Amino acid sequence: CHSECLGNCSQPDDPTKCVACRNFYLDGRCVETCPPPYYHFQDWRCVNFSFCQDLHHKCKNSRRQGCHQYVIHNNKCIPECPSGYTMNSSNLLCTPCLGPCPKVCHLLEGEKTIDSVTSAQELRGCTVINGSLIINIRGGNNLAAELEANLGLIEEISGYLKIRRSYALVSLSFFRKLRLIRGETLEIGNYSFYALDNQNLRQLWDWSKHNLTITQGKLFFHYNPKLCLSEIHKMEEVSGTKGRQERNDIALKTNGDQASCENELLKFSYIRTSFDKILLRWEPYWPPDFRDLLGFMLFYKEAPYQNVTEFDGQDACGSNSWTVVDIDPPLRSNDPKSQNHPGWLMRGLKPWTQYAIFVKTLVTFSDERRTYGAKSDIIYVQTDATNPSVPLDPISVSNSSSQIILKWKPPSDPNGNITHYLVFWERQAEDSELFELDYCLKGLKLPSRTWSPPFESEDSQKHNQSEYEDSAGECCSCPKTDSQILKELEESSFRKTFEDYLHNVVFVPRKT
């Protein structure tokens, strides 16, 4: 048989008469490798580009789960590009990614509803959504962080984005990388972005840091009482949809009607710091009717980097990364020049730590249904340095008659930039024990000054392991946590139920 035959053949030295091919099969003959313009397919066939392209389009058009959109890589027609490569849609070739590779997620039936953290986790790592997304989240724990972890990498949506009755959302900033909504599939009414009845939605994105392009379709905003109209108009300008909307697409009466839409800028007039305090004062603000001013709200939190936005980490279910302080308005003076500047002394802060701070007014709604208010920009203030805590785990070892090696770990709280350490030492008198000992005694162990690591005695271990207080009263049991108490109650309830079950099964009433 021919060298490319495997198993047997019907005619000697003829690659077209093989029972099976050793390498690849091409047009009725066995070959060692697939010549151009053919590609290896499933490690035994040679196919042309049209064959591989037909497989790709067949799966793409069917949208069946589990099928493969075949691509070409290293002269092979394979189910998908290997790690580190992405497909070129024009020629199906796998090309190296520039940075992290995109991950295209194809949605069944063309859309997916995100109504819980669990459903959001199914899209973790996706960068391109081939379909439409509907966000409908009523509640949950730590929602802002969970949504950002699972949806934060999405850069492109081919269909539309719909935010509907998501009472738990305060902001859409968890879509931190969303840059493009194509609108290839539109919501009824030709809408590519749809926001309806979101009672706590206050911000779409921080438009000073976020760009969003909507290729096709219109915007729809109705019944978002805490979303200011200025935020919607800003989205029109940034996304390129200005002029597409009709009169009733953006409701003037049901958007922002319960919001404090600040239209003035508060400026800080005085800032002073110490290692654990920050004193702030800002310019006074009074609405047209000074009785509408209820006070100020001061927001602050630790910020290692200057990239904080107002609604980071917030949701309507209680999660809030900001510390909020309510401040009463100052006494009002008739003389504008003698107006008191409101302020606040922030206490209990960490030394040498940068804080993000902003302040906003708290006002009631005027009778004319106009909203007044003022808010400052987010500023960054760093507390002063102070003395560091003591170095940890000092170790001293003498390696000769004239040297001592000293080692330690950095302090747990540096409280500033540590530039150097101060080492103090003092000579001590020799131990009298060394002169009084009889060095001729056998088995004498000389006193040693070398360091030995501390260890816990058996008594201390027994005390720590004991669940009861000892007789001397030195140790006591740790208080039980809520989960331990709940577990004990469940076990007790189970024992009672099981005992009742045994009584009912074992003891049967005697027939009379």
Rank of each mutant, 00 (worst) to 15 (best):
K103H: 08
K103N: 02
K103I: 07
K103Q: 04
C105G: 00
H106C: 04
E109H: 12
E109L: 07
K112N: 04
T113A: 06
I114E: 00
D115L: 02
S119C: 15
S119A: 03
A120G: 15
E122F: 06
E122P: 08
L123Y: 07
C126L: 00
V128L: 12
I129W: 10
I129K: 00
I129N: 00
G131L: 00
G131P: 00
G131K: 00
G131Y: 01
G131Q: 01
S132L: 01
S132G: 13
L133G: 00
L133T: 02
I135V: 03
I135P: 00
I137R: 01
R138E: 09
R138K: 08
G140T: 04
N141R: 10
N141L: 10
N141V: 13
L147E: 00
A149E: 12
L153P: 12
I154S: 01
E155D: 07
E156G: 05
S158N: 05
S158A: 13
S158Y: 09
G159S: 03
I163P: 00
S166F: 07
S166Q: 04
Y167F: 13
A168T: 15
L169M: 06
L169C: 05
L169F: 13
V170I: 12
V170L: 14
V170C: 10
S173E: 06
S173N: 12
S173R: 10
F174I: 15
F174V: 08
F175P: 00
F175G: 00
K177H: 13
K177T: 07
L178K: 00
R179I: 12
R179K: 13
R179L: 11
L180S: 06
G183V: 01
G183N: 00
E187Q: 03
G189K: 02
Y191L: 06
Y194T: 11
N198V: 01
L201R: 01
R202G: 03
R202Q: 01
Q203T: 06
L204G: 04
D206L: 13
W207F: 10
W207H: 08
W207V: 12
W207Q: 07
S208V: 05
H210K: 13
N211K: 13
L212H: 01
T215R: 12
T215Q: 07
K218C: 01
K218R: 13
L219A: 10
F221Y: 15
F221C: 09
Y223W: 10
N224A: 02
K226N: 13
L227F: 06
L227Q: 03
L227I: 09
L227S: 01
C228M: 03
C228H: 11
C228P: 03
H233M: 00
H233I: 11
K234W: 09
E236Q: 15
E237K: 14
V238E: 06
S239T: 05
G240P: 05
T241A: 14
T241G: 15
Q245E: 14
E246S: 08
E246Y: 08
N248L: 09
D249A: 05
A251R: 07
A251K: 08
A251Q: 09
A251L: 07
A251P: 10
L252Y: 09
L252S: 11
T254N: 09
T254V: 05
N255K: 04
N255P: 07
N255M: 11
S260F: 05
S260V: 09
S260M: 06
C261P: 05
E262W: 06
N263D: 14
E264H: 05
L266D: 00
L266A: 03
K267S: 07
K267A: 10
T273V: 15
S274V: 03
F275Y: 11
K277N: 13
K277L: 09
I278P: 00
I278A: 10
P284Q: 15
P284R: 09
Y285K: 08
P287L: 07
P287H: 14
P288N: 12
D289H: 13
F290Y: 14
R291A: 05
R291T: 11
D292T: 14
L293F: 05
L294W: 08
G295S: 05
F299D: 01
Y300C: 15
K301F: 04
E302F: 14
P304F: 12
Y305C: 00
Y305W: 15
Q306R: 11
Q306K: 11
Q306S: 14
N307K: 05
T309A: 06
F311M: 09
D312T: 14
D312A: 04
D312F: 08
G313M: 13
D315R: 12
D315K: 03
A316Y: 12
G318P: 06
N320V: 05
S321N: 05
W322S: 02
T323R: 05
V325L: 14
D326K: 03
D328M: 14
L331K: 12
N334F: 09
D335N: 05
D335W: 14
D335E: 14
S338W: 14
N340Q: 10
N340F: 13
P342D: 10
W344Q: 10
W344L: 05
R347M: 10
L349V: 03
L349K: 01
K350G: 05
K350P: 13
P351N: 05
P351R: 07
P351H: 04
W352M: 13
T353Y: 08
T353H: 15
T353Q: 10
Y355L: 01
A356N: 00
A356L: 02
I357M: 01
F358S: 14
V359W: 01
K360C: 09
T361N: 08
T361E: 09
T361P: 03
L362C: 10
V363S: 03
V363L: 12
F365P: 11
F365Q: 03
S366H: 15
D367Y: 10
D367S: 09
R370Q: 06
T371M: 11
T371S: 06
T371E: 03
G373T: 10
G373D: 05
D377W: 15
D377T: 06
I378M: 03
I379R: 06
I379N: 13
I379E: 03
Y380E: 01
Q382R: 10
T383Y: 00
T383E: 00
T383K: 00
D384P: 06
A385F: 14
N387R: 09
L392S: 13
D393F: 12
D393C: 14
P394W: 13
I395P: 01
S396P: 14
V397Q: 15
S398Q: 07
S398M: 07
N399S: 12
N399K: 15
N399G: 15
S400K: 09
I404N: 01
L406S: 07
K407R: 04
W408I: 06
K409H: 09
K409A: 15
P410K: 15
